[in-house]
Design a protein around this nucleic acid. Structure first.
Length: 124
DNA sequence: CTCCTGACTCAGC
DNA sequence: GGCTGAGCCAGGA
């Protein structure tokens, strides 16, 4: 995917203030520091919990949008860093999490349930 | 315009 | 209790 194309997704020429992606970005930005959430939680918050994949795909543009979206705080429902390979470098995701006092072991967030941040509950 | 794929999730075997 | 398949939406070829 070229940068130009990615930019188009994030910033559809001109208008388009509310796309599925921006919704995801908005929620993701609300994640407090040191907390994590899951794709499904965000998707559910948007009303389409079955579209958790889209959340992840939307995160594809995380870091390219402004302000930056803390995609490293978004993991799958098991707390596993499934998207770390999409970071550059991949270790960046874990480093950022550990920097926020979030322990990560074997690509999985420790005490995930305790650090879990539910957008539908906290953001509501 | 049609088909494929993708950072997920749930249900079934 | 681990693996497989299907469902989901949106963008890219």
């Amino acid at each position: 995917m070229s940068k130009k194309e990615t930019l188009k997704i994030i910033r559809p020429s001109g208008k388009r203030e509310e796309s599925f992606f921006e919704l995801v970005y908005e929620v993701a930005r609300q994640i407090p520091k040191g907390r994590v959430t899951s794709y499904g939680a965000i998707a559910a918050c948007l009303g389409t919990k079955l579209s958790a994949r889209m959340v992840g795909w939307a995160m594809n543009g995380a870091g390219k949008v402004k302000p930056k979206v803390p995609a490293h705080r978004v993991v799958n429902r098991n707390g596993m860093l499934t998207g770390r390979h999409h970071f550059s470098p991949p270790e960046k995701m874990q480093q950022l999490l550990e920097k926020e006092k979030v322990k990560v072991e074997n690509d999985t967030v420790v005490d995930f349930e305790r650090l879990f941040w539910d957008p539908a509950k906290e953001l509501l």
